[in-house]
Each structure stands twice: as C-alpha cells, then as structure tokens.
Amino acid sequence: MKRVLYISGLSVLLFLMASPAWSANQEDAKEELNAKEFITEHLADSYEWQIVSDGTRHLAIPLPVILHSKTTGWHLFSSAHFHHGTNSYKGFEIASDGKYKGKIVEVGDNGNISRPLDLSLTKNAASLLFASLLVILIIMGVARLLKRDPMKPRKGFPGMIEMLVLSINDDVIKPSIGKDYQRYAPYLLTVFFFIFTNNLLGLIPIFPGGANVTGNIAITFVLAIMTFLIVNLTGTKEYYKEIFWPDVPTWLKVPIPLMPIVEIVGTLTKPFALMIRLFANMMAGHSIVLGLTMLIFITASLGVAINASMTVLSVIFTVFIDLVELLIAYIQAYVFTLLSAVFIGLARIEPHSEKKKVTSTGQAA
C-alpha cells in the first residue's frame, strides 16, 4: 500500500512539473529553447547572486560593481542598476553578445565598445569568500571543541571532520612527503577542505550554492600555481640537480641539453595537469546535470505523453548523477591534495649518499 502511495505521489509531482513547462511552451508559439546557450549562461559568472526565479520575476542579491574607466575614472555602484529595468548605467552595460558577452563594457559617445578595468565582486568571487569563511568557521570550531577534551571520541559532524583530517594527514600527506610532512600539512589540508566545500556548494541549486567556483579555470589555475610555487621554492638541491644535471649519459646533457629540457617541461606540466583535471571534471559534472534537466523543457513541444515520460527519465538520471557528483566532489579534492603532496615529496628528495646512510643504519639496527 505504501509503495502504491509513493508511486502515485511521484506521478502527480512529475505531472505538475511537466504541465507548466508544456503550457508555457504552447503559449510562447513553440519557441525552441537553446540548451547550449542555457547551460553556458548558468555555468558562467554573473554580477548578481540569484536566489529564486520563476522566469519573469527573480529574487537576487546585487553585488558591488567596481570599475575604472580611462575617461571617467573610478566607479562604484550596485549591480542592481543593470537588472531593474535599465540595460545601461553611467555609460556601462552588460554585453549581450560578442567577445565580451556577460561582461561589463563601456559604450563611448561614438558607439565604440571597450572593456574597463573590472574589479567587481561577482557571484563566483562572493561564493569563494563565503566558502573560505565557512571552512575557517568549521575548522576553528572543531579544533576548539577538540582542544577542550582531546581524548574524548567525537560523534556526528565534529567526528566526521576529525576523521577527514586524520585520513588526509596520515594516509596522504605523511606517506607522500616524508619526514618533514608537518611543514606542508596546513597548506594541503586547507586545499582539500577548500576544494571539497566549493564542490559541495556547487551542487546545491539554491542560495548560498549554485556558483561554479571549482569549474572556473581561473580558480583552478591559482590553486595549481600555489602548488607549483611551493614545490619549486622549497625543493632540495638534489631536486634541482636532477632537473638541470640528471644522472643520464653525458651526451643527453651536452652539447644539447635534451634531458634538462624534458625535466623543465615536466615541472610545468604537473601544475597544468592539476588545473585541467579539477576544472574539466567539475565543469563536465555541472553540464551533465543541467543537460539532463533540460530534457523536461526540450520535449515540452512533443506532447504531454512524451514530455511526461522524459520528465520521469530526467528526474531519475539527474538524481543519479547528483549522487555520483557527491562522490566526485570528494574524489577531486582528494586527488588534487594527493598529487600536490606527491609533487612536494618528489621535490624533497635527498642525496643518494644520505639515503644509503639511512638504509645502512636501519639494517644495522
């Protein structure tokens, strides 16, 4: 009996979800929905943080716009001026097409369009700050709780955070880096929780989620650069010796420095791999979820029966992909932290003579 009620309730819900889309499509003269443009716009950054929308009206948090024009100087105003019935403000507007689509441009008196210096707080930037503050509050709160009674086992959320910290520190950072792992643990743990938190927030369709932070290549670029700098600024002499004078036949090093060039390229491809892996996986996941959701609206003009059946499939597959994305949110944070730790460990290589001393000491003991 309960199963029948569940199925009936789900059917009614899906019908209610499908009917408005079908009706709106009929009234709109069967206007085709551009799925590619819709997905691109939802993944792109914006100058407001949308909370809810019904298609004609929307509730959003306006964000501060900070611009510097070569002709009129600095400007500071709210992005609400672009979304409350006016398309332009003080000679600035958000481009609707072209290479500056979605960005604020300045329109001159002669109609020329130029891009001012844009330091505005966008949705991705606001979400990044929110996620950073959230990570700080969570970690500091759990640390304060554990400091009161370190030996008391924790349950619930504090226990989960403690488990994640110990797992990443003992199973990833310590084995990958070695004896001075504690020097790099704060950075690597921060990177893990920062990426994991932003991945989870990106899966939440309503405020304060919905921002595509880790699916933005600028964010993953900065994270990869930070790892690159730590690796190469704290590398040992043996690490640089293996780059510029590796232990290979001399003819591979002089007169043409073939192996040093290969090693230098290798130091650049490591952060590139970190950047692309995180960006591509999160961007692809968000695109798939949006694409599956769009099936409801794309099939609205094909009739109630087809639209209802595709709505059922869309809901089922979207829920499944969302569950997979929860796993991927953790895996991508874990992999980025693991590879960063491995790269740092490779840069902390010791001279072969010291390795032999350690080995002989261990055998003698």
Rank of each mutant, 00 (worst) to 15 (best):
V4F: 10
L5P: 06
Y6F: 11
I7G: 08
S11R: 06
F15E: 05
A18L: 05
A18V: 07
A18T: 08
A21K: 12
A29K: 15
E32C: 06
I39Q: 02
D54I: 03
G55T: 00
P62A: 01
L63M: 05
H68V: 14
H75S: 09
F77R: 02
S78N: 02
F82H: 03
Y89D: 00
G91Y: 02
F92P: 05
S96V: 12
K99N: 11
Y100A: 10
G108S: 12
G111A: 01
R115W: 13
L117C: 08
L121W: 04
K123I: 06
K123D: 04
N124S: 07
N124M: 07
F130N: 04
A131P: 04
S132Q: 10
V135M: 03
I136P: 06
L146I: 12
K147D: 10
R154F: 07
G156C: 03
V172G: 02
V172I: 13
Q182W: 14
Y184T: 01
A185F: 00
P186Y: 01
T190N: 09
V191C: 13
V191M: 15
I195D: 00
N199A: 08
G210T: 01
N212L: 05
G215C: 01
N216K: 04
I225N: 06
T236D: 03
P246F: 04
I256A: 09
V262N: 07
V262A: 09
E263K: 15
I264W: 09
G266P: 00
L274T: 01
M275Y: 06
V289M: 11
L292M: 05
L292P: 03
M294F: 08
L295N: 09
L302T: 11
V304S: 12
S309Q: 12
T318F: 02
T318P: 06
I321F: 08
L338D: 10
G345S: 02
A364K: 12
